[in-house]
Amino acid sequence: MTKIALSLAAALMMTGAAMAETVKVGIAAEPYPPFASPDAAGAWTGWEVDMIGAVCKAAEMECEIVPVAWDGIIPSLTSGQIDAIMASMSITEERLKTIDFSDKYYNTPTVIVGPKGMDMAATPEGLAGKIIGVQVSTIHEAYVQKHFAATAAEVKLYQTQDEANQDLIAGRIDATQADSIALDAFLASAEGMACCESKGAVADDTEILGLGVGVGLRKGEDDLKAKFNAGIAKILADGTYEAVSKPYFASSIYGG
């Protein structure tokens, strides 16, 4: 009996040690170009995927990318199925109640996109009577609920930004709000170019729009947090960040 218990304990320790070597980095399993989207073969590519590689290399960690459905990504982290989240997740007070974050690795403006020729602006008055579609559980949903819901006709929630974009093309919503980069990519596509245009950036609200995008981590894992912070600092200093960003963005998205 003791023997079995001992070997079991040894096996557990060994798996524990093996697991510590690879850090499982969760990304959202939904396409979010140009940050992360699967190519024809199913391999994930994009700025954020490259950034995971660069940060992990700089921090000397073995990282494994694990796609997880966006709406279950925080439970996956807290239950230990993944060890970190790098899925364009903004650092917010609300999320900090449940998880911890590294330093930010990017921060971009938030814009409103609507149909061409439709009269609107990225203000509560400019969106009065309009149907606004946003991705659920994002800072954009929180922002729209706080600033635009009172004057808008309706706020529709989507599982992915892609579905909101489709419904914008189909005329079921009048506007959508998201990260400028994600929406620039949509506006650069043939469908997006035909239907829609940017209606400008929304007014800042750091309480909701937060402190940029960071690596989501379990609370209390300070060693891992320090490693990620060191990795981010290193690639910013040695020019890797610029080199990784160049193919995707015209200007740096690190932000002020």
Binding site: D71, G72, I74, P75, T78, T98, V136, S137, K156, L157, Y158, Q159, E163, D167
Partner: peptide, 22 residues
């Protein structure tokens, strides 16, 4: 619920997504 109709199932998903209570 997959086409944005807010039925009771969609409400349960909303609670999970807002509060992280599963």
């Amino acid at each position: 619920a997959t086409i944005t109709v807010v039925d009771i199932y969609a409400v349960a998903s909303r609670v999970r997504q807002d509060t992280f209570i599963t």
